[in-house]
Structure formats: structure tokens, C-alpha cells
Nucleic acid binder design. Structure first.
Length: 495
RNA sequence: GCCCCCAUCGUCUAGGGGACUAGGACGUGGCCCUUUCAAGGCCAAGACCGGGGUUCGAAUCCCCGUGGGGGCACCA
């Protein structure tokens, strides 16, 4: 466990929507930074102008804020190693690329993209790994420099050693040995003068004094190259930690956007903001994400952000891929909803009712919230289960009004009697109402369940609802009586 | 095709040579509670991928196989 302050960075590229995989990496970064009183840096890797998506950075920022993940240095807050947007650091990368050429670790390449793809195709045809054929590697450096000075279009390639092996050490996996001969001469600087990830990220990680690099395991194949780059510069390496990928709930294949469209997949949403929109609590999402690929012990499952900061450790990360389990998110969300204070719950509920076009008052919500708190899994469920409180009329299914093991006539009679009983009560207080209605059931030789079932459908229009007696009080005497009247009418239309 | 990584219940995981009749959680099934639905309580089914080693002893270490995943761009 790192005890001295770490400097970690989350370095997404603004090329699309922000998903839970990125959120987990950012979360872990944040946790060790806070735990060690270190710094968490947000860096935007926007060196690919073709893939740039406008609004992506904004979504990222909004997502992290929502989850409660805050950074100490970044494009918006600045910091001692600014700028934190790679597109604003192009000169730095150019200098470093050229330094590598001068030290003999890289070379200029003048091959056209057309030639490159031709070479690649041929190699594939011969069932060989598609790699650069090394044409420009054999060029005389002075001659190459002259061509560059003459303005010829070029890139900078890393001169990967042809012999030997490179050992890259991952914190979770130990040493990974790779034959250098299987590595390609990767491009470091593109012909437009912008760097590629392999260069930019290494340069920035060094310049920004990053001590621990947490990133996805999709970087494992190029990991040795990154080590080689550090060695070429003569820099000390950070601690490398490769996080496993998220798999689809089935465990088959990487979690992907395409699967989201298939309801059978079990995928609810893979984008953080979609989870927010689906009315999940950020603390539930955080807890859920933290536990995919990490565990504390053999029993503890609930962790607040503070708990996580205290208890998280890189060593307990699991290197194997994890299939996401959305039913577990539902479970956590239920736990967190039930743990909310009344005021907190009311505050969080309100926007969701309003989004549904309802205008509940705080007092109304305060009386309803306790009735539904332990029955909802997401905040949106509340609108579904408790919408009837706010509707002017309910539309019960006439057949549904018939009590269990009863006919329409008996049910109508029971409803009428209930109308009388409720009318006679001076108060809607459950302590008064419940005994009165139970007594009615008894005198009608009905079970409480039979009578309550009829009234439930009459008054809520639903087969399932919050507890009936308490609901009656909230709905109010007048509306209750109206709705029962209506139910009696409906029952009388039945044969 | 080549390279890399991974491998315990359906899923997330505990386990780091004897404490394992392999523990917990989600989900599933049953029971209890109960005015519906939940919540809660109790119970149950359910896993060490296969084969070789090493060792007195292997879920734990090594090798091979198999399976799964990832990568092979002037993307990140």
C-alpha cells in the first residue's frame, strides 16, 4: 500500500460518452490520492482531432462531479504543470520526439500511408504479424534530416530494439516479458506534428511526476513499448497498474454500447449520465463500481466514499475481467434509498415527480415518502408507485375491482359499505380507520385482504400500492369517497 | 495468423500449502411475517476448467492443454 503521497492521473480522450469503465479508473485514482494525501490530476488526451467529439469533455466533468470524484489539477482548475489539455502541449511532444531521434532511439519515416497499408496487407497475406517493414529505419540519419528540413512530409517512429526482451512490471501481474522482435516501430509523432498516445502520455506522466499509472488492460500489449520509451529517455518509471476490462453481464465479450440496446442482455446503461437519468443514487453507483475488480474482505460490501478512501488498496485489485451485474446495482440502490433521511429522500424525489409532470408539495412528499421508501429501487419507481396520489382521477380496471373469491355484486356491496364506514369517521387517522375497516370486513364475513384489495384498486387504481390505510389518509377523505363511488358504478356495469 | 493477459458457485468475490465439510454478496427457490407489493428474518440449491508435476499435504506453487478476454492504426 502506498503510504507516501501519490500523484495519479485520469487521462481520458474526449471521443465519446463517459462510461462506467472510465468511472472506475477515475474512482480508484481519486481514492488513493485522497488516502495518501496526494494529488489527483485530470488530463485531457485530445491529440486526435479526427475523433474529437464536442461536448465529451463536458459530459466527463459532469459525470465525475455527480459521482463525487474531484480533482486537484486539471484543465479547469489549473495546476503547477499546466496546461492539462494535450492539444495545448504540442511543442513539448515535438521537442521530446526530436530528442529521441537525436539520441538514436527514434527516426524519421517518409513512407506514405498508402505504402504502409500495402505492406501491411502483404504481410497479412503471408500470415505474418502486420508490422512496419523498417524501410526508413535504414535511412542515413543525416540524409533523413535533410529531407525533413526540405519540408518533406514525415512521421517520427520509435526504433524498437530488434534483439532481446523487455520486462514490464505490472503491480498486479508481476513481470511481463516480451521479445522485442515482436514489437513494432510505433509512430510517436504524426505527420501533422501531433503526438500519438505512446509518446504524449509517457512524456506527460513523467513531466507531471505521476507516481502510479492506473489504466485499462487494453494497454497491456503496448505496455513494453511504454517501458522502452521511459528507458530511452532515461526516466524512472511509475508504478503500473492495469485494470481489467468490464465484460457484458453474460461474461461473453467486452461491455459494449451495442449490447445496451438489447434488453435481454441485462445491461441497464453503461454511461454514467444515463445512470443518473435512470434515477440511481451516485453513492450506490460508486459503491457498485468500486466492487467490480476490488474487494476489501470476505464480508463487507457497503462502502461510503469515506470508507473507500480509508479501505481501498491497489494490492487487493483483481486482475481478471469482471462481468457487470446490474441487479447488484439495483440492490445497492435500494439499500442507499432506505438509508436516506426523510428530508434527503424528499429532496431527491421531487425532481423525478416534476419530470413526470407532477407538482407535489413538500408536505405531500413528506407524507408519501415513508410509505414508499422501502418499496422503490430507483427514484423513478416512486413516480410509478405513488403517482396516483397526485392524479385527479384514477382509472381502475373494473374486473380488477372484484375481490378475491368474490363476484361483482358482492364487491360493489363491500365498497358501498366501506363508503359508509369512511364517511362516518371523524378522522382519517390510520389508528381510527384501520379498526373500523377491519370490523367492517368481519361483519361482511370477508377477510381483511379481500376488502382491502377492493379498496386498493378503487382508490389507487393499482393492484399493488403502498399500505392502503396510510394511503387513504394522504389522499384525503373527499377524494377517497369519490373514488369508491366511481368503483361502485364500475362494478355495477359488470354482468 | 501473431503477441499479451486471465481462470473459485449463473454473476461479483474471500482464499495467497495444512484453519476448506471452500466463506460472503447479488440473483434463484422455499418458509415465516403480512391488507397488495416491498422491506425484514430463516433455510436451501449452487464453484476450485482439465491433465501432469513439486510436496507428507495443493483451490493455493510450476508446466502443458483448454476456455475466456484484450491487442496488432499517422485512435486512445
Amino acid at each position: 500500500m502506498p503510504i507516501s503521497p501519490v500523484r495519479v492521473r485520469f487521462a481520458p480522450s474526449p471521443t465519446g460518452r463517459f462510461h462506467i469503465g472510465g468511472a472506475r479508473t477515475a474512482l480508484y485514482d481519486y481514492l488513493i490520492a485522497r488516502q495518501t494525501s496526494g494529488q489527483f490530476i485530470l488530463r485531457i488526451e485530445d491529440t486526435d482531432r479526427k475523433r474529437f467529439v464536442s461536448g465529451a469533455e463536458e459530459e466527463l466533468v459532469e459525470s465525475l462531479h455527480w459521482l463525487g470524484i474531484e480533482w486537484d489539477e486539471g484543465p479547469d482548475v489549473g495546476g503547477p504543470y499546466a496546461p492539462y489539455r494535450q492539444s495545448e502541449r504540442t511543442e513539448i511532444y515535438k521537442q521530446h520526439a526530436h530528442a529521441l531521434v537525436e539520441s538514436g532511439h527514434a527516426y524519421y519515416c517518409f513512407c506514405s500511408p498508402e505504402r504502409l497499408s500495402r505492406v501491411r496487407q502483404e504481410m497479412q497475406k503471408r500470415k505474418q504479424p502486420p508490422r512496419y517493414d523498417g524501410t526508413c529505419r535504414r535511412l542515413d540519419p543525416a540524409e533523413a534530416l535533410a529531407r525533413v528540413d526540405a519540408g518533406e512530409s514525415h512521421v517520427v517512429r520509435f526504433k524498437t530494439p530488434r534483439q532481446g526482451t523487455t520486462t514490464a512490471v505490472d503491480l498486479l501481474r508481476g513481470p511481463i516479458n516480451v521479445e522485442n522482435a515482436t514489437l513494432d516501430d510505433f509512430i510517436l509523432l504524426k505527420s501533422d506534428g501531433l503526438p500519438v498516445y505512446h509518446l504524449a502520455a509517457m512524456v506527460d506522466d513523467h513531466l507531471m511526476h505521476i507516481t502510479h499509472v492506473l489504466r485499462g488492460s487494453e494497454w497491456l500489449p503496448t505496455f513494453p513499448l511504454h517501458v522502452l520509451i521511459f528507458q530511452a529517455f532515461g526516466w524512472e518509471q511509475p508504478t503500473w497498474v492495469h485494470l481489467s476490462v468490464f465484460l457484458n453481464p453474460s461474461g461473453k465479450g467486452k461491455l459494449s454500447k451495442r449490447q445496451t440496446l438489447d434488453p435481454k442482455s441485462g445491461v441497464k446503461a453503461i454511461h454514467v449520465l444515463d445512470l443518473q437519468e435512470m434515477a440511481y443514487l451516485p453513492e450506490a453507483v460508486t459503491n457498485w463500481i468500486a466492487l467490480m475488480g476490488w474487494s476489501y474482505d470476505d464480508r463487507t460490501e457497503q462502502f461510503s466514499m469515506l470508507d473507500l478512501i480509508q479501505k481501498f488498496s491497489l494490492e487487493k485489485l483483481v486482475p481478471s475481467p469482471a462481468a457487470v451485474n446490474f441487479s447488484k446495482l439495483d440492490h445497492f440502490n435500494g439499500i442507499y434509498i432506505r438509508s436516506l433521511s426523510l428530508d434527503d429522500l424528499v429532496g431527491r424525489l421531487r425532481p423525478h415527480f416534476e419530470a413526470a409532470g407532477l407538482r407535489p408539495t413538500v408536505d405531500q412528499l413528506r407524507s408519501i415518502a415513508p410509505l414508499i421508501q422501502e418499496r422503490i429501487r430507483t427514484l423513478d419507481d416512486a413516480v410509478e408507485i405513488a403517482g396516483f396520489f397526485f392524479h385527479e382521477h384514477v382509472e381502475p380496471d373494473p374486473v380488477g375491482l372484484i375481490g378475491k373469491n368474490m363476484d361483482a355484486e358482492q364487491s360493489a356491496l363491500a365498497a358501498e359499505k366501506a363508503h359508509q364506514v369512511i364517511t362516518a369517521q371523524v378522522s382519517m387517522d390510520p389508528d381510527v380507520m384501520e379498526p373500523a375497516l377491519r370490523q367492517l370486513a368481519e361483519s361482511l364475513e370477508l377477510s381483511a385482504g379481500q376488502l382491502f384489495g377492493i379498496l386498493r384498486m378503487a382508490v389507487t387504481g393499482q393492484k399493488v400500492s403502498p399500505p392502503l390505510i396510510e394511503s387513504l389518509e394522504v389522499i384525503g377523505k373527499q377524494k377517497v369517497l369519490e373514488r369508491i363511488d366511481r368503483a361502485v358504478q364500475l362494478l355495477e356495469t359488470l354482468p
